[in-house]
Write a protein that binds this DNA or RNA. Structure first.
Length: 914
DNA sequence: TTTAGGGCCGG
DNA sequence: CTCGCTT
DNA sequence: AAGCGAGACGGCCCTAAA
């Protein structure tokens, strides 16, 4: 109920005002030039640590025998841990059936130069080599045997903590030593990295022995690094900064392709495929001693691969590494392919099943602390410092000692474990999750713990994601299973295979179906074995931002296009069909394939009366927008967002919704993806019965006159929408995320338009992953001259280049103060890691303003108690010419907020008069 | 029973 | 969602 | 141009704690 009250308030407040942003005056207030203060960047002051938390006894968290580490601060709880249940790592078994992985790490780069290798602690012994099979014997071999193992672990760890990144790629040589052949050939960087890439894989093993030399100061699990800018690259400069090399072939496709969408034919083989083809020819089987079909693939097979993938940014190489790993899995234990794929894409189930891990940094930190017997505060501070919770976990684990070996983690075991964690719910579920995580840690070796954590965080952060996984999957299957089928060169077949798999997956987004189909039937006729079917979400087509009408005209210079209003609601992909019993079924999916059916019982009920005669089945692409029935007007997104989300009952609905349809992907048993937009629109017309306020067609027009376009854009904004979506009329529907054949034109993208603010950075948070070492985001404030306060308006984390971010971090470090000034007004729940003195002024841009539950800007002015914040803030530039007192004022912010709603209302009433 | 924190998801 | 970086 | 990974606000929902 509370929700409802709030809703109605909001509705009335926003009623009149769908967003709008006319060109308002820019905040350019005036300029009292203040000399740009010279900045001396002293080392930042220490950030505050969170209150220490209670430490718990470690023993109780280990599922297996562990001994408190030596040396470690674990003294309090931990020494003398006692043995408990064993249960080797794998998975807490639950009825979970399918494998899925999830993991997401976030890593961070070093915030300070690698401090050299850690004194390899030799404690941890974890190296069980016992096959999982045997594990039932709970107590087998309880002798702990540290030494040998310890040595091994150190080796592994060091590799794991990969070099890559900040160290710069220039040092390919040393990297190669450590990381393995993977980078070996990068010596020849430029050019021909082709040829003998092959061993990338094979040497992988070699590293096991060879890499003891890895003195590389490791940073962490190979992660996307800070990039070349951060640290100057010693060696030969920046390799490919420019777009030096681009294959002619690639060049050729280009705008043409975008314009006239490609249906599905391979036109010319990309250079990438050619290169890949060459590399694949030297695939070698890699040996993992503890891997045989019966035991299943060791998790290490994957983490080793992740490690190597994390050490490069080259896509070809990433694809190669993963493909080879998949090939080995197919050869030796094909049943592990599905779980392996899930682990690679870091999911525990298909999106539409809605199963999630339910873990975030906060819980993971607790879990790590518990599992290792360290204090939460310590883990937290290490995380702040390293920016990578995975690394923290690996090093924390060093201090544990296992009394006797546990079987190695396996791919399928990990998947099951993640799934079990995801399925835990209800009372005590948090504890259960933490326990399960603890068990995984205990059984992990080397860098495994790091990837476990990253996976649980939901960010693998190694530059590997769905598209690449699909490509590798296709390549692996082609090479292992269909190597002789098909025509054309290997490169052509590889390209086609990848395309096939991506296309099939986009229509049947479930690895549970696609992977088995690939293994059983191969690539030929894959779509028959993993077919689209109504009720199963399809990846929606997305639009790409543009900077103005001229860019649109340029991109679509040689083709006919159309514009549609870009409604500010949420994507709704509506499936309607009849089941075998003849009953009408409706399912509604979000842009990310989440099943929103239970959120929109009103829409489900409405569909029956919205379809024309003879419509048996259809898939509609729409935007669900909050709608005021009385006033007959659309409402801002903020209103829509207050709707209840789960198991909604029609009678409880407070925010009504109107559907704006703009595409039809399926009609009476026929897929329409290959049809041009023109054709799909015709079908759409024959499917939908428009009803004002319930279901309407998105407003559209066709023209290529600049003035008309601009006029239409203005109308769109005045009507309360975000702008326009521009589409070529002959474009097919390209489901996969990568095909951005639609363009979005929003007012705030336009230069000189949209709202800008001059704000004062008064605090910041440490960066994670790629941004480790500097700040990752800043807390910004505007000026309230009346109260003489600096009031927070938003945080910002985008708009700066890596280089600029580093500069800003260094500069701001010089302004760090121990505690906030008394004249800072901020939300108690939004405390930055560090506070700054008010010195700098930055110009930022935003889409629009909203009443905020946490920010204080203009508090009491637009809303009696709340402040104002902004949507989609990004940095425009630094204003060295301004002083904090010149910042945008609370009054100005308030006025902008009012304008936003007023303008809208005015336009609306004018329309009504017509 | 109520509330606060954490997580997920939407744009 | 926006943005920047890399291939 | 594609793909990836940094980061933003605000809302509901669930769980744990008060």
């Amino acid at each position: 109920m509370r929700g409802r009250v709030r809703v109605s308030c909001l509705v009335s407040a926003l009623l009149a005002a769908p967003r709008q942003s006319l060109c308002r005056w820019r905040s350019a207030c005036d300029r009292r030039l203040t000399a740009a203060a010279s900045r001396i960047p002293p080392p930042g002051s220490a950030s505050r640590l969170p209150p220490a938390m209670k430490q718990r006894s470690i023993a109780s968290f280990f599922g297996s025998p562990v001994v408190g580490a030596r040396g470690g601060p674990s003294s309090s709880g931990g020494d003398g841990g006692r043995v408990k249940a064993l249960e080797p790592g794998a998975a807490p078994k639950r009825p979970g059936d399918e494998p899925k992985p999830t993991s997401k790490p976030q890593a961070a780069q070093a915030r300070s130069p690698p401090k050299g290798k850690r004194p390899s602690q030799d404690y941890g012994v974890d190296a069980p080599r016992k096959p999982k099979r045997l594990r039932k014997a709970k107590g087998q071999g309880k002798a702990a045997q540290p030494e040998g193992v310890a040595a091994e672990e150190d080796v592994i760890d060091s590799q794991m903590e990969s070099p890559r990144n900040e160290e710069g790629r220039g040092q390919a040589a040393s990297v190669a030593d450590v990381a393995g052949a993977c980078l070996a050939d990068s010596g020849k960087e430029d050019g021909s990295q082709g040829a003998d890439h092959s061993d990338t894989e094979s040497d992988a093993d070699s590293r096991t022995s060879a890499s003891s030399e890895s003195e590389v100061s490791a940073e962490n699990l190979g992660g996307r690094k800070a990039g070349k800018n951060g640290i100057a690259e010693p060696g030969g400069g920046t390799p490919g900064k420019g777009k030096a090399t681009r294959s002619p072939a690639a060049k050729k496709r280009g705008k043409k392709k975008a314009a006239q969408s490609k249906a599905g034919k391979v036109e010319g083989v990309g250079a990438a495929s050619e290169a890949a083809a060459a590399l694949y020819s030297e695939f070698k089987e890699e040996d993992y001693e503890d891997w045989d079909a019966a035991k299943g693939a060791p998790y290490k097979v994957l983490t080793d691969t992740f490690q190597k993938i994390g050490n490069t940014t080259k896509r070809l190489e990433i694809t190669l590494l993963l493909t080879n790993t998949f090939r080995r899995i197919i050869k030796r234990s094909a049943g592990d392919l599905l779980p392996a794929v899930y682990l690679c894409v870091n999911r525990v189930a298909p999106a539409h099943e809605g199963l999630e891990l339910g873990l975030g940094d906060a819980t993971l930190i607790k879990a790590i602390a518990q599992a290792t017997g360290k204090k939460e505060a310590l883990i937290k501070s290490q995380y702040e410092e390293s920016g990578d919770l995975g690394t923290v976990a690996v090093s924390a684990r060093h201090t544990q000692r296992v009394l006797f070996p546990l079987p190695p983690l396996t791919i399928s075991g990990m998947f099951q474990a993640f799934k079990a964690i995801a399925m835990a719910q209800g009372s005590k579920s948090q504890d259960q999750k933490k326990q399960m995580i603890g068990k995984l840690f205990v059984s992990s070796k080397g860098n495994e713990a790091g990837y476990i954590v990253r996976s649980l965080q939901g960010k693998l952060r190694i530059g590997l994601a769905e598209q690449t996984v699909l490509t590798s999957l296709a390549h692996a299957v082609l090479l292992e299973r269909d190597s002789t089928s098909g025509k054309g060169s290997l490169a052509e077949r590889l390209e086609k295979a990848a395309q096939t798999v991506k296309q099939v997956y986009s229509l049947c987004p479930t690895y549970n179906v696609v992977v088995p189909a690939l293994l059983e039937h191969g690539l030929d006729d894959l779509s028959k074995h993993a077919p689209f079917s109504p009720g199963m979400p399809v990846r929606p087509m997305l639009a790409k931002p543009t900077s103005g009408v001229s860019e649109v005209l340029d991109k679509f210079s040689d083709c006919a296009f159309t514009c549609e209003y870009k409604y500010d609601g949420e994507r709704a992909q509506i499936h309607v069909w009849h089941d075998d019993a003849g009953k009408q079924k409706v399912q509604i999916y979000s842009r990310n394939a989440e099943n929103n059916t239970s959120k929109y019982p009103d829409l489900v009920a409405r569909m029956a009366s919205c379809l024309k005669e003879g419509v048996k089945s259809a898939v509609l692409d729409c935007e669900a927008v909050a709608y005021d029935i009385q006033q007959k007007r659309i409402l801002p997104f903020q209103v829509l967002s207050t709707r209840a989300r789960k198991d909604v009952t029609v009678t409880d609905i407070k925010v009504q919704v109107c559907l704006f349809c703009f595409d039809c992907l399926y009609f009476n048993g026929r897929l329409l993806f290959q049809e041009p937009l023109t054709g799909r629109r015709q079908v759409l017309n024959s499917v939908i019965k428009e009803k004002e306020g319930e279901i309407q067609f998105a407003k559209a027009m066709v023209s290529r006159e600049v003035e008309e376009l601009e006029g239409f854009l203005n109308d769109a904004v005045a009507a309360g929408t975000e702008g326009l979506i521009v589409k070529t009329l002959d474009a097919t529907y390209e489901p996969s995320q990568r095909s951005l054949n639609w363009l979005k034109l929003k007012k705030d993208y336009l230069e000189g338009c949209g709202d800008t603010f001059d704000v004062v950075p008064i605090g910041a948070w440490h960066g994670k992953g790629k941004r480790k070492g500097g700040y990752g985001s800043f807390l910004l404030a505007i000026y309230n001259p009346g109260l003489e306060e600096l009031q927070t308006i938003c945080k910002i984390g985008t708009g700066f280049s890596e280089e600029q971010l580093k500069e800003l971090s260094d500069q701001m470090r010089g302004y760090v103060i121990g505690k906030p000034k008394k004249y800072y007004s901020y939300g108690e729940t939004l405390i930055p890691d560090v506070w700054f003195d008010a010195k700098a002024v930055w110009e930022i841009k935003a889409a629009d303003l909203s009443i905020s539950p946490v920010h204080q800007a203009a508090r009491g002015m637009a809303d009696p108690s709340k402040g104002i914040s902004i949507r989609f803030p990004r940095l425009v530039r630094v204003r060295d010419d301004k002083a904090p007192e010149d910042a945008t004022t609370a009054e100005q912010v308030t006025e902008m907020y009012q304008q936003q709603t007023l303008v809208q209302a005015k336009k609306k009433s004018r329309r009504d008069m017509d």
